[in-house]
Write a protein that binds this DNA or RNA. Structure first.
Length: 496
RNA sequence: GGCGCUAUGGUGCAAAGGUUAGCACGUGGCCCUUUCAAGGCCAAAAUGCGGGUUCGAUUCCCGCUAGCGCUACCA
């Protein structure tokens, strides 16, 4: 067994990845996709998936906001092996790293007022700035040279970016990257203390790196919006005596107008897709293929995706979240899932809508599976089972106005449905063909096309213009119920 | 403004110098059919622009354009 050195292509077992969301209260689809890619990568190569909550922003540091993220991940089926860790509980570690860097000279204290750098008009105090090259906005202030009397009590700590050299890092998606250090500002590691605070807070750049080192993360898979800041992090790894991980920046998810997906594009949290009645596996399949692919493969069970996933298949171009395609995936799963895998979702849907009967999981289990199987070719979302298909699960349902309009026009229908009720009631051997014969014989006797009766009967027994094939529907509903509904329809037709 | 990334039909992806540029969603049509889906078949629809390199560019290089990202003592 040889150990591969190409850890991005054929990692040898000790892969460690992490998903590090900030607690926003819900799992955004962009975050969900990042989480999914990390998870797929970990599962593919037998690695470890770590969950870390980046809650250093005190404003958003509330427990219920974390719960929303966890709920989203659980629904998505993305589980983790370690964590959740909370960055807010690790601040001392981060501070210690900053102070260590300051002590070694890799960083320095700076007490320039933050406003000095605010906005796009930052200062320029580099020597070559006086040239006509125009203002460069790379922060490199006088404090860099050393200023006495400064400490964490009264100043911030900035990283001293080594000049005259270049910073490289490996990106499994974008390839090797290299930037001139002159382009990298002396970014803040530790903020200056706020009024009343004894010490300042670590910045994101510092915290991620310290935590990723501490958690021995080998592959940082995250949104490509982080790519520009990665050189800073690569620098920090080295200053801290660590080897940078392999980065893998995945493209962003855009709305239909090609701007970054946001609330104004409509639903952006995975929770809303769950609530709408998408199947998690369909959502996963869709998300996995948004920014990743293997040839022309489209419909792939999660196990397949895991076995095929690789960073090499990740695209570099931002992609538009295409809702119609997501729906197509849902229809595919609704159609193709083994019935036993689908049934629990339908049970959940019926429970939510108060239509569920416990016996359907017991003695009428077979009936329930059969009914779901009959219904599913015409469903798109889970709620279809409790709305459109309500009459299969409840005796209280309404006649869809459009269905009446479409199929109950003919005035002869009232009497005919009455006769059909009698004919159906007289069936001794309740099966598909018996229903078929009863109806067609009546149609012939009445001199009407079978279609007229079929369509009208459908409305009568399920209240909808659209339903599974009529005789299958009758079978599943049962003789007694069909007769009863036919008689009710006669009343409904006469009073109208 | 600076730095960077990206660029194949409306959308998501294929084609790792040579294909009639492929697949899927969506769209239109046909078939199937008791409704409506599903399914099957067919169709319209793309290599941003300009230069190179090469016998040959979707593919490699340069420029332009466009989009996006980063440019905080946010994460």
């Amino acid at each position: 067994m040889t150990t591969s050195t190409n850890t991005s292509e054929n990692p040898s077992g000790k892969i460690r990845v992490r998903f590090a969301p900030s607690p926003t209260g819900y799992l955004h689809v962009g975050g969900a996709r990042t989480a999914l890619f990390n998870w797929l990568f970990a599962r593919r190569f037998g690695g470890t998936m770590i969950l870390r909550i980046e809650d250093t922003d005190i404003e958003r540091n509330r427990p219920e906001l974390v719960e929303g993220i966890l709920d989203g991940l659980r629904w998505l089926g993305v589980d983790w092996d370690e964590g959740p860790y909370f960055q807010s509980q690790r601040l001392d570690l981060h501070r210690a790293a900053a102070e260590k860097l300051a002590a070694s000279g890799a960083a320095y204290f700076c007490d320039c007022p933050p406003e000095k750098y605010a906005g796009g008009d930052a200062v320029e105090e580099t020597e070559d700035a006086k040239k006509e090259a125009g203002p460069r906005r790379v922060t490199r202030c006088a404090c860099r040279g050393g200023k006495p009397g400064l400490s964490t009590q009264n100043a911030a700590i900035r990283f001293r970016v080594p000049q005259g050299t270049t910073t490289k890092f490996e990106d499994a998606v974008f390839g090797p990257r290299e930037v001139a250090n002159e382009e990298i500002e002396d970014f803040v590691l530790l903020r200056s203390p706020k009024d009343g605070q004894a010490q300042g807070a670590p910045t994101y750049q510092l915290s991620v790196v310290v935590d990723d080192i501490d958690m021995r993360v080998t592959h940082v898979i995250r949104g490509s919006d982080h790519i520009s800041n990665t050189p800073k992090q690569a620098l920090l790894y080295r200053a801290l005596g660590a080897t940078p991980p392999i980065f893998a920046h995945v493209p962003l998810i855009l709305g239909p107008d090609r701007t970054r997906l946001s609330k104004r594009h409509g639903a952006t949290s995975v929770g809303s897709y769950r609530d709408e009645g998408f199947l998690p596996e369909a959502f996963r399949n869709f998300l996995a293929l948004l920014g990743w692919s293997v040839g022309d493969a489209e419909f792939m069970r999660t196990s397949e995706i895991i076995s095929l996933f690789s960073l090499e298949g990740v695209s570099r171009t931002n992609g538009v979240f295409d809702r119609p395609k997501l729906e197509w995936y849902n229809v595919q799963y609704l159609q193709k899932l083994p019935i036993d895998e689908l049934v629990p979702f339908i049970q959940g849907e019926l429970e939510r809508s108060k239509l569920w009967q416990p016996e359907w999981a017991g003695e009428k289990r077979e009936w329930f599976s059969k009914t779901v199987d009959l219904l599913r070719p015409r469903t798109r979302l889970l709620p279809d089972f409790s709305t459109w298909a309500r009459a299969f699960f409840s005796d209280t349902f309404e006649y869809d106005p459009q269905a009446r309009e479409k199929f109950w026009k003919d005035e002869r229908l009232g009497p005919m449905l009455g006769k059909l009720a009698d004919a159906v009631a007289a069936i001794t051997d309740w099966n598909h063909d018996a229903c078929d014969h009863a109806l067609r014989e009546l149609a012939a006797a009445e001199g009407v096309k079978a279609g007229l009766l079929i369509n009208a009967t459908r409305v009568a027994i399920v209240g909808q213009a659209v339903a599974p094939p009529l005789f299958d529907t009758m079978l599943v509903l049962g003789q007694e119920r069909v007769v009863r509904r036919l008689r009710s329809a006669v009343d409904a037709l006469s009073t109208h």
